[in-house]
Amino acid sequence: MEIATLLSVGLSNGCLYGLVGLGLVLVYSSQGIPNFAHGELFMAGAFLAYTAIVLLGLPYFLSFLIAVVGIGLMGMLLEWLAIRPISLHRSLGRASSEVAIVLATVGLAIVLKGLARIPWGDSVRNLPTAFTTQTVTIGGVAIATQRLLIVAVTLVLTVAISVFFARAPLGKKMRATAQNPTGAKLIGIHTSNIYSATWALAAACGAIAGVLAAPLIFLHPDMGTRMLLKGFAAACLGGFGSVTGVLLGGVLMGVVEIFAGRYIATSMMDIFAPIIIILVLLFWPQGLFGARRAARV
């Protein structure tokens, strides 16, 4: 019983970490850089949903859609405004332009957090859950409906994205661009647009995670910072390469974290992510689920 309760929480937390990690992996695969502003896209998604649901009174799932599409567009805009000008700057070598892009994402994170403070200030807000029934009892275990939704959405999204990369023309173009930008240009792919699309997709994933997580963790301009760390750890475990790898990485982390908290020490829970990042980078730089390092996306 207790095990089941812990599993339900660990699994759903892990799915969230995986979702956040997924957005990181998408951008990393295509541009080779960790997007430090991803936590803020997560935050922005939650606030956009809050605006739609609480302030405008729109239905939950319509608001969800608005948040995902809106933040997807925002990701595209950010790439266009802040990332593309750097990557097109020919005077920079490849290595230094990557460093510049990473720094740009750090800057974006600070700017977005600062901008969020203007309308939202520092008070903590609540995003309503998707369902009015807060918990359901399955086999004697009380599980929050929001957590069930998180797991369901994550699974569907992971499958959808895997299929998208395997089958959809845009998905194939993204993979091609990620693996070899020059090769992609030579077969007529507008790689800059692919980067925009990748940012849009990553941002949309971040927004989905944000909207799903917000009812559990409260809305606040800083809410993305901690999540970014968890997502990063999930991505590291997954080898920063595959869609399923990052999900598995996230779930593993979520489950280990809660069991360690319960049976070792709760004070350990939050230092798990940084420890995992360090250990994985030291001993398994390809990640636990990323046997094929070069298998980007």
């Binding site: 693996q179 070899n180 090769g183 030579l186 077969i187 094929r292």
Partner: peptide, 22 residues
Amino acid sequence: AHRVFRHGLSLVPQWRELFTDM
């Protein structure tokens, strides 16, 4: 390049520039 391509030009580059995992 992607616009030049549309005119009907294709380049097979020296280093082939394949997508190694596809």
